[in-house]
Design a protein around this nucleic acid. Structure first.
Lengths: 340, 340
DNA sequence: GCGCCGCGCGACAACGTTGTCGGTGGTAGA
DNA sequence: TCTACCACCGACAACGTTGTCGCGCGGCGC
């Protein structure tokens, strides 16, 4: 319940003051042709009453044009991947005068469904979603009803829709391969839960790289239950205290890289044990952290372009864009194994 | 122009299929009491047609309740201060079932006005704004029309409204004082443009700390034209190459701290020259960076609380909340001057 | 058995705007 | 001066929903 000041004036009020019909006010507001005399009167009245156009009513009446709002459902507004993505989306939206309704999913499928439902009720024109759920057939109805939907970072399950992703499998592969190529053989892999699609893919890629080199993946080499930086920190500390510790780590999420770095520093093994991270972040270069970098800005840009193409009537089959990643060497991943 | 599938069914369609009046559909959708027979028929029809309630039309008709959307205008969605703030706002909004319309101002006053105007047209229930402009009387009209507005991070000019800020003057003072207390006397201050209110306040605080110690502020000690990390990097490099270089730096914005750190590393003076930053960021602890830390989450929380209090009818005089800051020593600010 | 009360449902208006269409005024041409 | 036309403006309906009101029916009391 908004603290009501006086109610906002409507076109009718403006019309009454200006001495014209309220349809003429509509014309002036929408820039349709009227005589200068009418426009002047209307504008004067608008000014005097502080009239503000009501887009909600306008959109309701108009047949075409939609609400000029798109919804963005990301993993966590506060994390740098999500917020950079959001920013890229915003820049694309700005050009088209659309607003962004943003929310965090926190990896909770229920939240995803609740938020989608809310956004549908609000009749957003489109949806960009970094999914948390693993069933998306519930979205089929909405898409058929004319709600373009672009999935970023992860693929939907159960429906075929536009996607913009990084090749996470290859990225995980590249990260491990980078270390293997430098002579490491005892490599520990830190990952988030395999129930998270990207995490599972990166992990599979990492394991594949090891296997391709004939290195069997033993149990101690993989930790796939790490949710936060603290978890990674503990996992690295544990691994380092093994009798035969790893000479290199791969952290498959930026938050895990941070925990890993912290643990290496705490153990004084910074610069002795190699580390490759996944996902860049603003200060990674300062910490000499070698990472597999996703081009977040480009992902957002492409996602917006796909969405807008749909809004412009493109109804071709869903596109699946893979935005190239890149391994950025900064030092931490180029530490050689001790025996070399 | 949205790629129209078939148009969405309305209450009228549902009513026709269920064999009831569309007003009864409204009742069911809104959880008002109806007989079980009617509810069943309606729910079945809703299911069958995939009816989705139209909040825009609902809000238009309802006298009370508003749109359950608040606008958040921040400096830059991609920067950690803004995105953490947004996240805190989101969490508060979630509890009240309101959505967040987010946008970046990029320090451009024109954008601020344009976005406010857009949000007003959309009839958001409230506004949280990290202002870019330095005149805000234009908002007076909207506030009188019942649009609660909370300013965060900076004070508005020309109107009196709720604010949630950090004591930037004292923060700047504390940063310099921390270095003075450790014996530094040749301190260089890196700041953003003084036209940015927080930057100006921090700078004034920093200068005051120097003056209070009887240290005259000479021209070489202050750079107040640094917009990006690169600028800071160059400024620090220049300062270090002076015949009598500073023994400590104060960077009054996180992005400047990053540039400064980079320059110190590049010059190999990391750990020899002291540095205190302003504004924490996620990996600052990893870089041993001493900072004056704002409690962003709390700022967001308090701002949301103020906003919602206004929405609940609080019409007392504007409140000005100052959220405490804290100097977090992590090493870089505790480097002693060389002669000690 | 009659009348009254109450409850549940439907008809209709209204929210603030835009699409449609018909009317009115002015101007130009004969 | 008259006609034809055009350009502009206003009356009205409609968008999808909720508020208001009235009607009809069932139950209960006398």
């Amino acid at each position: 319940m908004p603290a009501a000041g006086k109610p906002r004036p409507t076109m009718k009020d403006v019309a009454a003051l200006a001495g014209v019909s309220f349809k003429s006010v509509s014309r002036v507001v929408n820039g349709e042709p009227v005589t200068d005399a009418v426009r002047d009167k209307v504008l004067r009245a608008v000014e005097q009453l502080d009239y503000r156009h009501n887009l909600a009513a306008s959109n309701l009446r108009r047949k075409t044009g939609g609400t000029r709002v798109v919804g963005a459902l990301v993993q966590d507004l506060a994390n740098s991947f999500s917020s950079e993505l959001l920013r890229a989306l915003e820049d694309a939206c700005r050009e088209r005068q659309v607003a962004l309704l943003a929310a965090s999913l926190d990896e909770e499928p229920d939240r995803e469904r609740a938020l989608v439902s809310d956004l549908v009720s609000r009749r957003v024109d489109g949806l960009v979603i970094m999914p948390a759920s693993d069933r998306h057939d519930y979205l089929d109805v909405e898409r058929r009803a004319g709600l373009p939907t672009v999935f970023v970072d992860r693929h939907p399950r159960g429906i075929d829709a536009d996607t913009v992703t990084t090749d996470n499998l290859q990225g995980g592969y590249d990260a491990v391969r980078h270390l293997l190529d430098r002579g490491h053989e005892r490599i520990a892999v830190l990952s988030d839960l395999p129930s998270i699609q990207t995490a599972a893919l990166r992990l599979r890629g990492a394991e594949k790289a090891l296997q391709d080199r004939g290195i069997p993946v033993e149990e101690w080499m993989v930790r796939a239950d790490l949710r936060a930086d603290d978890d990674a920190e503990r996992a690295v500390a544990e691994a380092l205290s093994r009798p035969d510790p790893p000479t290199a780590f791969v952290a498959l999420r930026n938050i895990l890289s941070i925990g890993a770095l912290r643990a290496l520093r705490a153990a004084g093994r910074d610069g002795e044990v190699a580390l490759v991270g996944f996902d860049d972040f603003p200060t990674a270069d300062l910490m000499d952290l070698t990472v597999v970098r996703q081009d977040v800005t480009r992902i957002g840009r492409v996602a917006a372009d796909l969405l807008f193409a749909r809004l412009d009537g493109d109804d071709s089959t869903p596109r699946h864009v893979v935005v190239p990643h890149r391994l950025v060497p900064r030092g931490s991943g180029e530490v050689p194994p001790p025996h070399l």
